[in-house]
Amino acid sequence: MRFRIYRYDPESGAAPTVQEYELDFDPKGKKVLDALIAIKDTLDESLSFRRSCREGVCGSDGVNVNGTNVLACVTPLEGLKQPIEIRPLPRLGVIRDLIVDMAQFYQHYRAVKPYLINLDPEPENERLQSPEERAELDGLWECILCACCTTSCPSFWWNPDKFLGPAALLQGYRFIADTRDQSTNERLDFLEDPYRLFRCHGIMNCVEVCPKGLNPTAAIGKIKSLLVKRAL
């Protein structure tokens, strides 16, 4: 199998390059991550990438494969056009090879206060929530923070420091949608901003690439309609 992989060595002072690899590998049933590991184990120990769960739940190995943001561990090799081109996620700074600097992404995540705010005294047992109320959280809480969506978003490319991006906004809405949370107004106050929220133009790249099948655009739409309702 043939690969073209983005390489950057921060210690060399040299500009990034694309390196070609020829790997003797049966792709049947295997994923992109299996190939990356095989390259590292047998051809080039210096090839660097993040990985952990290898089953699409930890969000470590978001990369760009043949032009699309994916999780390497759940992307089948079969059917990919060769040479398979693997690059770091777009727009974030590259630390080394396929490893990007996630600091900005995490900062946006923290900015939405991604935790339940409820100042009532804690009840003796659980707080009650009907299955219907709980269903409002489905499609929100499953986010794995892989950054595939945010780094595929043109609005984020243009304003990475000011636009929160789909992942952070999805988490912002996750707590707005939670019947146990008491901070909706403050959350909306924070989001009501020409950049943080309103740079989303509904391009929907986020929906297309989300490896968990989530829909940040819909969540952003719901935040927007809550803001409209509140204004009326």
Binding site: Y115, L116, N118, E122, P123, E126, R127, Q129, S130, P131, E133, R134, L137, W141, F175, D178, R180, D181
Partner: peptide
């Protein structure tokens, strides 16, 4: 649950 864990109901 009080911390916010989204248990099924």
């Amino acid at each position: 649950e009080h911390m916010g864990l989204p248990f099924s109901r």
